[in-house]
Design a protein around this nucleic acid. Structure first.
Length: 514
RNA sequence: GAUUCCGUAGCUCAGCUGGUAGAGCAUAUCACUUUUAAUGAUAGGGUCCUGGGUUCGAGCCCCAGCGGGAUCACCA
C-alpha cells in the first residue's frame, strides 16, 4: 500500500504516542456529560452552569500558541472551542502530554476527551477551559480540511476548500458526514420524516408489518427485477419490486390497516431521481376509498412538513411550496384539457395517436389508449404541477389493481399526488372483485404479448386470496426518498441516501470467488 | 444504453500556442499563555485517472479504456 506523506506522519505519531506510554486506542469508558451544542447554546456566565463537563469527539482544528492552545472539538451535536494550557493538563514535572502529544502527535480527526469548565473568551465565544485531557482514538488518514469564516459585514458563513467532489462524498460518506455538517442535517430530517409518518399511522391504530423481500413472483408493479437464486430450494427468486400484493393479503387476513416502510429494488436506469434500491411506504386501510385517502394524505404531508421543516411552506429550488391542505383535485382528462387546450375525452386510440404526433410525443404500436393518455400527461402536464395537486381518475389500462370508477366509464379510482412536477404518492380505491381482477391480469398479459414490457405479471395465489373475500379498501404508496428530497431542498436522490449505488472501482480488493 | 463535460499535491483549484509541474489550506521544523480561515519564518510533498499514438518534446493534441457529473431514454 502506497502511503502519502501525511499518512506516514500519522503512523509515526501513533508510534510516538505509544512510546510515551499512552494507549492510543484505550479500552475504558469515557463518560460524556455534555455535548457541544448544548454548552454553546446553554452556557450563561451569570448562571455559572457547565462548570464541570466532559465532552468527547474529534479534534477538527488546533491553534497552538506556545504554552497555551485553542482547538475545536466536534461531537455528534456540533463543534465547540476548547482552551488548553500546558501547566493545567500537565500539573507534574512531565510535560509530555502537552509538549509532545498535544502539540506534535495530535492530528486533525483524532478523538479526544476533555474535562473542564465553560467560559467566554474576550470575543465572547463560549469555550471549554480544559483541566484534563484524554486521548481516545487515532486517525491515520487526513480528513479534508473545510474552513469557515463568518463574514462580519454580511453575517454569512463563508466556506473555504469545501469537500465537494460528489464521487468521493458518496463513496466515502463517513468523510462527507464528518466534514460537511449540512449533510448530517439532511439525514436527521429524513429520520424525523419517517418517525413522523410512523407515529401518525400508529396513532390511528394501523399495524406496521414486514413482508417478503425475496419473492418468487414479482407482482404489484411493473418493473424489471433483480434475479437471485435460492440454493437449498433450487428456485429462482426476485428482490421485490413492490409489496402491494402481500399487504393486501394481510388485510384479507383480518387487519384493518397495515403499512410497511421498506426497500424496493428495481433493475432500471439510475439518475437524479432513481436508485436501484429505494424506500417506499405503502399503507392499506379497509372500508375506505380514494376520497378518504386524499384527506388522510393531506393531513400526513402537512404534519410531516411542520415536523421536518418547521412550517407548511417549504422552499424548493425557486418555488415556495405550500403543503397545507386541502390540495387541488384535478381529473387527468381535465388536466390535459387545461394544459393543452384539447379535450381528449371522446378520442379513440387512433385519435390519441394522432394527437400525440401533433404534440411531437414519440409513440409506438405497443401503446394502448391508456398508455397514450399517460404519455400526453407526462409530456405536457406533469412538470407544471408545482403546488401539491391530486391528479385523479386514470385510464383503466394503466392500472390493473384499482377499482373501476363509480361513474366514469373506462377510468379507475386512482390518484397521484404531484409536487414540484414530480409524483410523490400513488393511491387507489383498491379493486376487490376477484373476477374483475383476473380479467385485468389477463388483459395485462395481452399488453405484454403486444410488446409492453411494463405489463404486470399474474399472481395466482393473490387471486386465490381475493376469492376468499377482500374487504373494500384504499391503498397508498409514497416514495420516501423523493419526499425527503422535497422536504430538504435536495435535487439528487444520492443526497438523501447514505450510500447511493456507485459503480465499483476496478482493482479494489474484491471478495475472492469460492 | 445515448450525448456531453470533467479527472493535476491530503482538500479546493490554476496551468497560456505543445517546451523543466503551481497557489492557498493541510503536513514538517522553529517562535508564541485568549486565538478563531490564528500569526511570523523555513522546508518537504506529484503514477498530471490508465494504456496506446502523434511529436525532437505531451498535463495540454489524437484513439481506446476506467470513474464521476449533467441531459436524454427506461423507471418511482
Amino acid at each position: 500500500m502506497q502511503l502519502s506523506e501525511q499518512e506516514i506522519v500519522r503512523r509515526e505519531n501513533l508510534q510516538k504516542i505509544k512510546n510515551l506510554g499512552i494507549n492510543p486506542f484505550p479500552e475504558e469508558e469515557f463518560q460524556v456529560s455534555a455535548h457541544a451544542e448544548e454548552v454553546v447554546e446553554g452556557f450563561n456566565e451569570e448562571d455559572g452552569n457547565f462548570q464541570n463537563v466532559k465532552l468527547a469527539g474529534r479534534v477538527m482544528m488546533t491553534r497552538v500558541m506556545g504554552k497555551a492552545s485553542f482547538g475545536e472539538l466536534q461531537d455528534a451535536s456540533g463543534r465547540i472551542q476548547f482552551y488548553v494550557t500546558r501547566d493545567e493538563i500537565c500539573p507534574d514535572e512531565n510535560k509530555d502530554l502537552y509538549n509532545q502529544l498535544f502539540k506534535k502527535y495530535l492530528d486533525i480527526g483524532d478523538y479526544i476527551g476533555i474535562e473542564g469548565f465553560a467560559f467566554k473568551t474576550q470575543t465572547g465565544q463560549t469555550t471549554i477551559h480544559v483541566k484534563k485531557f484524554t486521548f481516545l482514538s487515532k486517525s491515520l488518514r487526513p480528513l479534508p480540511i473545510v474552513k469557515t469564516r463568518k463574514n462580519e459585514e454580511t453575517g454569512e458563513v463563508e466556506v473555504y476548500d469545501a469537500f465537494t467532489d460528489p464521487e468521493q462524498r458518496f463513496r466515502q460518506r463517513y468523510v462527507d458526514l464528518t466534514v460537511n455538517p449540512s449533510v448530517k442535517d439532511i439525514f436527521l430530517k429524513r429520520a424525523k420524516l419517517i418517525a413522523t409518518m410512523r407515529s401518525f399511522f400508529d396513532s390511528h391504530g394501523w399495524l406496521e408489518v414486514e413482508t417478503p423481500i425475496l419473492q418468487s413472483v414479482h407482482g404489484g408493479a411493473a418493473a424489471r427485477p433483480f434475479d437471485t437464486h435460492h440454493n437449498t430450494l433450487d428456485i429462482p427468486l426476485y428482490l421485490r419490486i413492490a409489496n402491494e400484493l402481500y399487504l393486501k393479503r394481510l388485510v384479507i387476513g383480518g387487519f384493518d390497516g397495515v403499512y410497511e416502510i421498506g426497500k424496493m429494488f428495481r433493475n432500471e436506469g439510475m439518475d437524479r431521481t432513481h436508485n436501484p434500491e429505494f424506500t417506499s411506504m405503502e399503507i392499506y386501510v379497509a372500508y375506505k376509498d380514494y376520497n378518504w385517502m386524499m384527506g388522510m394524505v393531506e393531513a400526513l404531508i402537512e404534519k410531516i412538513a411542520i415536523e421536518v421543516t418547521g412550517g407548511t411552506i417549504v422552499r424548493y429550488e425557486e418555488n415556495e411550496i405550500n403543503f397545507a391542505g386541502p390540495y387541488r383535485r384535478l381529473a387527468m382528462i381535465e388536466a390535459i384539457k387545461e394544459y393543452t387546450g384539447t379535450d381528449i375525452s371522446q378520442m379513440d386510440e387512433a385519435g390519441l395517436r394522432a394527437f400525440c404526433k401533433e404534440l411531437h410525443i414519440g409513440v409506438d404500436d405497443s401503446m394502448g389508449k391508456g398508455k397514450l393518455i399517460d404519455e400526453i400527461f407526462g409530456a405536457k402536464v406533469e412538470e407544471q404541477l408545482i403546488q401539491p395537486t391530486y391528479i385523479i381518475d386514470y385510464p383503466i389500462e394503466m392500472t390493473p389493481l384499482a377499482k373501476k370508477h363509480r361513474t366514469e366509464e373506462g377510468l379507475v379510482e386512482r390518484f397521484e399526488l404531484f409536487v414540484n412536477g414530480k409524483e410523490i404518492a400513488n393511491a387507489y380505491t383498491e379493486l376487490n372483485d376477484p373476477i374483475d381482477q383476473r380479467e385485468r391480469f389477463e388483459s395485462q398479459l395481452q399488453l405484454a404479448e403486444r410488446g409492453d414490457d411494463e405489463a404486470m405479471a399474474l399472481d395466482e395465489d393473490f387471486l386465490r386470496a381475493m376469492e376468499y373475500g377482500m374487504p373494500p379498501m384504499s391503498g397508498l404508496g409514497i416514495g420516501i426518498d423523493r419526499l425527503t428530497m422535497l422536504m430538504t431542498n435536495q435535487h439528487s436522490i444520492q443526497e438523501v441516501l447514505f450510500f447511493p449505488q456507485m459503480r465499483p472501482l476496478k482493482n479494489q480488493n474484491h471478495v475472492e470467488e469460492n
